[in-house]
Simulated scan of single mutants.
Amino acid sequence: MEENRNTLSAPAPHECERAVLVAVVRDNQEPRQAEEFLDELEFLAETADIRSVRRFTQRLPQPSSRIYVGPGKLEEIADYCRENEIDVAIFDDELTPSQTRNIEKGMPCRILDRTRLILDIFMSRAQTAYAKTQVQLANYEYMLPRLSGLWTHLERQRGGTGTRGGAGEREIETDRRIIRSRIAKLKEDLKKIDRQMAVQRSNRGQLVRVALVGYTNVGKSTLMNLIAKSEVFAEN
């Protein structure tokens, strides 16, 4: 039986995974800019304990709506991954659900896109209850349109006569119902946390609230530690 390769199941902890990076260079885009994006993607991969071993680029007016790159390029990438036992292929844009499914058919390894990679990093780094809830919500909203064929990440609730869901309910519909239920609960949890935080803020009188907002790994925690003399966890 063919091994189930999906974008939603995390690999078991082991030595650093090996990856190829894939990007489309648009006609109106400078090659240097594309390389900068790939440098950033490689940096994100390293943050997720994934080592980049090769980059693949292709110049196109726009990414293919079916497989992101051209069929010949995808075959070249697949052959390289197969011959070199690559663990994961990381695409520099967010892939649509249909692109992901089509790409997986021809690839011998896991598929990640930039959004999935960033979500994985956030999930591993979230510390507070609010942050963890936000990341879980973003993760489920990302997963919902990508459930087709990606069932192993959820508990199975099989329908049957006299059981919840009714006889013959398709697994994919059951999964969607589970995900929607979890999304609804997480949104309600966020509202509760927001109300708690509002009470806490009201108890602080006239203190000014300041937030540091920025892309992952740009130095927010380091800056916070310098300004506030705090000890927020920070690393490259």
Results as ranks from 00 to 15, higher is better:
residue 175 D to M: 13
residue 164 R to V: 07
residue 179 I to Q: 09
residue 153 H to P: 00
residue 141 E to W: 11
residue 142 Y to K: 10
residue 170 R to E: 02
residue 135 V to Y: 09
residue 136 Q to L: 11
residue 140 Y to A: 02
residue 150 L to G: 03
residue 150 L to K: 09
residue 169 E to R: 10
residue 145 P to N: 07
residue 139 N to C: 09
residue 153 H to W: 10
residue 168 G to F: 09
residue 171 E to Q: 09
residue 164 R to F: 06
residue 132 K to S: 05
residue 135 V to I: 15
residue 155 E to K: 15
residue 157 Q to L: 10
residue 178 I to M: 12
residue 175 D to R: 06
residue 149 G to F: 07
residue 172 I to D: 00
residue 139 N to F: 13
residue 171 E to G: 02
residue 138 A to N: 10
residue 141 E to D: 13
residue 153 H to V: 12
residue 159 G to A: 07
residue 132 K to Y: 03
residue 157 Q to E: 12
residue 147 L to E: 01
residue 149 G to R: 10
residue 142 Y to V: 11
residue 157 Q to T: 06
residue 170 R to T: 06
residue 132 K to R: 15
residue 158 R to Q: 13
residue 148 S to P: 00
residue 166 G to Q: 08
residue 158 R to N: 07
residue 159 G to T: 06
residue 151 W to M: 13
residue 162 G to I: 04
residue 174 T to W: 09
residue 162 G to A: 04
residue 147 L to K: 03
residue 167 A to E: 11
residue 180 R to A: 08
residue 162 G to V: 07
residue 165 G to Q: 08
residue 174 T to P: 01
residue 179 I to R: 07
residue 140 Y to M: 14
residue 167 A to L: 15
residue 180 R to I: 10
residue 168 G to V: 01
residue 169 E to H: 04
residue 149 G to L: 09
residue 161 T to D: 01
residue 142 Y to R: 04
residue 172 I to F: 05
residue 138 A to M: 14
residue 178 I to W: 03
residue 175 D to Y: 02
residue 154 L to Q: 00
residue 139 N to K: 14
residue 153 H to A: 12
residue 149 G to W: 11
residue 158 R to K: 15
residue 153 H to K: 14
residue 152 T to K: 15
residue 151 W to I: 04
residue 169 E to M: 04
residue 178 I to D: 03
residue 179 I to D: 11
residue 176 R to I: 08
residue 145 P to Y: 07
residue 139 N to M: 14
residue 149 G to N: 01
residue 141 E to A: 10
residue 150 L to C: 12
residue 133 T to D: 13
residue 179 I to N: 09
residue 141 E to T: 13
residue 155 E to R: 14
residue 167 A to I: 08
residue 142 Y to W: 15
residue 162 G to Q: 04
residue 175 D to Q: 07
residue 143 M to E: 11
residue 177 R to S: 07
residue 172 I to L: 12
residue 173 E to G: 02
residue 166 G to N: 06
residue 159 G to D: 00
residue 157 Q to Y: 03
residue 153 H to L: 10
residue 152 T to F: 01
residue 135 V to M: 10
residue 142 Y to A: 07
residue 166 G to R: 08
residue 161 T to I: 15
residue 135 V to P: 07
residue 179 I to F: 13
residue 164 R to W: 07
residue 163 T to N: 03
residue 149 G to H: 08
residue 174 T to A: 13
residue 151 W to P: 01
residue 136 Q to R: 12
residue 140 Y to D: 12
residue 149 G to V: 13
residue 143 M to F: 15
residue 162 G to Y: 05
residue 160 G to W: 03
